[in-house]
Design a protein around this nucleic acid. Structure first.
Lengths: 340, 340
DNA sequence: TTGTAGGCGTTATCAA
DNA sequence: TTGATAACGCCTACAA
């Protein structure tokens, strides 16, 4: 058993009350300067660190934020997730908050148990959601308990939405215009789970753009992946094996698109010439795929920091100068679609 | 402020004492079956979850394990780390423990503060270390406080070592034999920070193998990377620009090797013919690089689970049937070195 | 089988 | 400027 040094030990050593020690360390101004100096010195020398559990119990807050990745397995290897978590962690740390991260399959019993443990068990002061579902029990649950949360993309359940939204409309308009300009008319879409807000929004924008350009959407060219590399790979293998395969594949995210690159490669196609591939996200590394990937770039890291900053505002309960942030992704044209 | 439901609320609702409720929920056998049934039902209905802070304070343990990734930035995108953390998390979860993860640059003040906060502040019951340094203050610190910890690779400071070690000796012997058999004599090594135990051990094994095969080591062919893709890329660009470039490059880990593949690709070399590249780790995806990567495969996920299982043994303080686990990596020959 | 009461280490209120 | 004291919510020896 490691020795635990408590505030009592420090107080005894200095012949002070624990009250004074506590206040000296917390920077209250009703402590004599000399006393404070001594307290800080001795505390440091003794290696005293306040006990988290005790402090949390007393203060009724944890200075901890939570993020539960909705995935079957921990997909930290997904660069989008890695950037996202890095952003959350950095902004949290910058405000002296910890970030608790875990994983649970979307809509699973496990997911509900985990949220309940964290929320009702008081493990976190607030939560960040992403991969929001159109109807999202998490939103209803948290809103019902008045537990602070923010989300990337608003769910239809969100009455009082605080978070960040990325509008795919203009970006897709640009992308589709460009693809059509390159002579494509058989354009496929590899999406994600249909309940996902991003899938819904992005595919709707995609449809809208094709319609307004009077280009037919062939239903056999619309496939559902799972946002992973493997999903993109499998879907595009199928697409390219069709009698009349597409000449361009628009993917709901970059990972899917990278899987698409693999598939096209394996089928012996020249990417950018025989078939065009585009992604969405602008993850680190998208510029360094083979060939470099055309994508709609959104500042994932910055978005994550913004989400935390909004969440902290919500927790502290003060005035919120802004409650929603709306962004446009930026089209990055690279060789996977034949370049400019 | 979200409503917090405490054990008191449940007790009041049932006209029972909190003692009885507590014992009913914790499965003590001195509770009437009927009482227990009611308690469980009402607790569930009210959405009661024990307050973590209170429970931890009372029990003087947290059922939480910690892992601090020694890196400048969160490198969750590193597949080795992703697998490692997944293993830690899964084994922890299987034993009803949480896993707390954070990042701090090796040897930084930030690293020390974080360890101190977690250890002295009682945030975690035990810690997992990897990327152990030859002289590692973490080992001394934790051993001094008698705080349970395990490590992947033993530090020279570890008096009473509990953890997993992977011995590169035999694997490298096989690899070097094979490379020499393929006609290579100018073999480069791209390593990591020299204080790292894995760098020390792997490079020592590499040297030993070349010596016993009476192959000269050209010092200009030994470079220090940083275990990242970018580091491997830069190092190999330099190597291949030498007047007398190497014909084979052995890398301390797979990520470095993948960077090496990029560099060789960019220099227009045919990998596996003009230059051979080998890695170490056997990360997911190593078999799917272009071309597939020859590597020394170690079961990262399993190692991580084993580490946690050892740590839990240490924490519970019972008999430890095994305190050290030693493993041999397995040579996987693929096209990046020309295949068989 | 159930209840009473003490205390885990902190912070905050109030009095000295 | 400092100190005594009462919670925070839970678990558990001990008493009933």
């Amino acid at each position: 058993m490691p020795v635990m040094i408590t505030i009592r030990d420090v107080a005894r050593r200095l012949n002070l009350s624990i009250t004074t020690v506590s206040r000296a360390l917390d920077g209250y101004d009703d402590v004599a300067e000399e006393t404070r100096r001594q307290v800080i010195e001795v505390a440091k020398e003794m290696g005293y660190t306040p006990n988290r559990a005790a402090r949390e119990l007393r203060r009724q807050r944890t200075d901890t934020l939570g993020y539960i990745l909705p995935a079957d397995k921990p997909q930290f290897a997904d660069p989008f997730i890695a950037e996202f978590i890095a952003g959350l962690g950095d902004e949290a740390a910058a405000n002296n908050f910890d970030l608790l991260v875990s994983t649970a399959p979307a809509e699973s019993a496990q997911e509900k148990t985990l949220y309940q443990r964290w929320v009702q068990g008081g493990k976190v002061d607030g939560l960040v959601l992403n991969y929001t579902r159109l109807r999202d029990w998490r939103v209803q649950y948290l809103a019902g308990l008045k537990k602070p949360f923010v989300s990337l993309e608003r769910s239809l359940d969100a009455v009082d939405f605080v978070g960040v939204e990325v509008d795919p409309g203009e970006g897709y308009a640009e992308l589709i215009d460009y693809l059509i300009g390159m002579g494509h008319s058989r354009i496929a879409y590899v999406g994600g789970w249909r309940e996902l807000k991003i899938q819904h929004d992005r595919f709707a924008a995609f449809e809208r753009c094709l319609n307004s350009a009077a280009v037919q959407i062939d239903p056999t060219l619309v496939l559902e992946g799972d946002l992973t590399l493997e999903g993109g790979y499998q879907a595009v293998l199928r697409l390219l094996s069709l009698n009349r395969p597409p000449t361009a594949v628009v993917c709901v995210n970059d990972l899917t698109a990278i899987g698409a690159l693999h598939a096209a490669h394996e089928m012996g196609l020249r990417i950018g010439r025989d078939v065009a591939v585009a992604g969405f996200d602008g993850i680190m590394g998208a510029a360094h795929t083979n060939p470099p990937l055309t994508t709609l770039d959104q500042p994932v890291y910055t978005i994550a920091r913004k989400l935390v900053s909004l969440l902290l505002g919500l927790i502290s309960g003060g005035e919120m100068p802004e409650r929603q942030v709306r962004l446009q992704p930026k089209l990055m044209i690279r060789e996977s679609t034949g370049g400019r």
